[in-house]
Amino acid sequence: MSALVFAALYMIGDPVLMLASPEAGDAERELIRQSFGLDLPLWRQYLIFLNKVFVHLDFGKSFLTGEPAIGLILDRMPATLELATAAMLFAVLIGVPLGIYAGLKPESFGARSVMTGSVLGFSLPNFWVGLMLIMVFAVFLHWMPAGGRGPVQAFGPIQLSIFSWAGWRSLILPVATIAVAKCALIVRVTRAATRECLPQDYIKFARARGLSEARVLGVHLLKNILIPIVTVAGLEYGQVFAFAVVTESVFSWPGMGKLLIDSIITLDRPVVVAYLILTVVFLSLLNLVVDVIYTILDPRVQSKARA
């Protein structure tokens, strides 16, 4: 994959032509090329790159800024994490109750509306939802800003914008954009899981014991439907992370995705390659985390593991 990206970005354009001022002569361009090692044959560039990555954990420096690519990406990561986490939280907090409701009374009008709504939610393209939100809330109503990130405050080593009202005002539209689609998915998963759990003996037994409906649903049902929800939410979290490319472009959110698009446009190869490698690492870690949570939640998996 890294080789593919490497070769690909090499072929489409010459970063030097973008970077050098148009007044620069051929001699200057040649100098720039040499200083970046762009004058070497492609395979040597690639070998040098591999050596740096695996031996020195060095992903190279951004052509545009001269800063290490990995640092640029990590700088932008909190913004994307903030967006993805807030969106996923909203999706789960809204999606699970709606899903349980739709699972409990599948034939009711409300449940049908929820399910139809969920079809809308996951079929509408992400950028479309963002666009419409901007149009309504930013252009016509002037309630929220059309894009950008609010003021940030340091929270430990990272900068977050969730500590001020201005920060939330900027955050709410992009979060809603992502949450709509993910919420739709969570609703469907929850509904399916609920319908599968309801006829089970332990629910019937709990009801027979005369436990309140709230307790039956809140404890017995929720405990059992949590597994598929956590699995899907975890995996979707990774997708949100990747799909933030779109949302971040629509809202000019200064996260990793926006950086990726900008870097593709300016042919800033080290940044693109580093981004893809980081994403893969992140997704693998996420899978691992989901697996671990899975074991904690499901006693059967645990006992199997022990045995």
Partner: peptide, 10 residues
């Protein structure tokens, strides 16, 4: 200045 994308040398 190394790695200058567009040098002031011009």
């Amino acid at each position: 200045v190394p790695n200058s994308p567009s040098s002031f040398n011009l």
